[in-house]
């Protein structure tokens, strides 16, 4: 789950990036609206965490422009202006959620998961496929009553695949999800993690589509 964080305060930038990474997200941080616009046009983000007062303008104006252009990316507005009027203005501008500073990292992560879920058209918190229920809040899966633990990177790959179970995700797309811009991509890293996932979930859970990428195997009984 790639999250774009638009926040100009250095300390908070770092806190958001580290905190969200610990919570299983793949955050990218920018400090200005100009950088945010560039990032959104060049990469796919599952959600945006947007500050309101930024050095080069108002986050709400940016959000309005985004919605006018038809962008559907969920946006969570994060700001010190958390009066009722500000919250209403933020939501009516096109924000999917609104969180006042200071905030709990857990709450921010939960709200992000909620708006992502709604974006996918799901109501249930767990992602379910082929008997595996993946809990994004705890980054664990359960199958037949037994808990299956994943590393952060394994979770990110599995989560991306389970979000759209029938879609094929290329190696590059998965790499982009696992590693932020700041991280060095190890060669064959995606293959290594997929291999480990197959060891935990059964060889047939993830299929390799030659020349295209990966996807989940069709549900048993569904054909």
């Amino acid at each position: 789950m790639r999250i774009l964080i638009v926040e100009d305060d250095e300390l908070l930038q770092d806190g958001l990036a580290v905190g969200l990474r610990l919570a299983g997200f793949v955050p990218e941080v920018v400090g200005t609206l100009a950088d945010a616009g560039q990032a959104l046009s060049s990469g796919a983000f599952d959600a945006v965490v947007l500050d309101v007062m930024l050095p080069d303008g108002s986050g709400l104006d940016f959000l309005r422009g985004l919605r006018t252009r038809g962008a559907r990316t969920p946006v969570l507005v994060l700001t010190a202006l958390d009066g009722l009027g500000d919250r209403i203005a933020g939501l009516d501008t096109g924000a999917d959620d609104y969180l006042g500073k200071p905030f709990e990292l857990d709450e921010l992560a939960a709200r992000l998961r909620a708006i992502l879920r709604r974006g996918d058209g799901r109501a249930r918190a767990e992602l379910v496929w082929n008997g595996l229920a993946l809990d994004p809040a705890r980054m664990v899966g359960s199958r037949g009553g037994a808990e299956v633990a994943f590393s952060r990177k394994e979770f990110v790959i599995l989560h991306a695949l389970m979000q759209h179970p029938t879609a094929i995700l290329s190696r590059a797309a998965l790499e982009e999800r696992v590693y932020g811009w700041q991280e060095e991509v190890e060669s064959n890293a995606v293959e290594v993690h997929v291999h480990k996932l197959r060891a935990k979930l059964g060889a047939g859970f993830i299929e390799t589509v030659r020349g295209a990428g990966y996807r989940l195997a069709a549900e048993e009984g569904a054909g």
Binding site: D9, E10, L11, L12, Q13, D14, G15, L16, V18, G19, L22, D51, M53, L78, A80, L81, G100, K101, P102, F103, E104, L105, D106
Partner: peptide, 22 residues
């Protein structure tokens, strides 16, 4: 109040990270 909330949010986030760092 506004100007103090942003650094406070940063401090809080860092404190939470320190508390749950793996």
């Amino acid at each position: 109040a506004h100007e103090l909330k942003t650094p406070l949010a940063g401090l809080k986030a860092q404190a939470q990270i320190a508390a749950r760092a793996p």
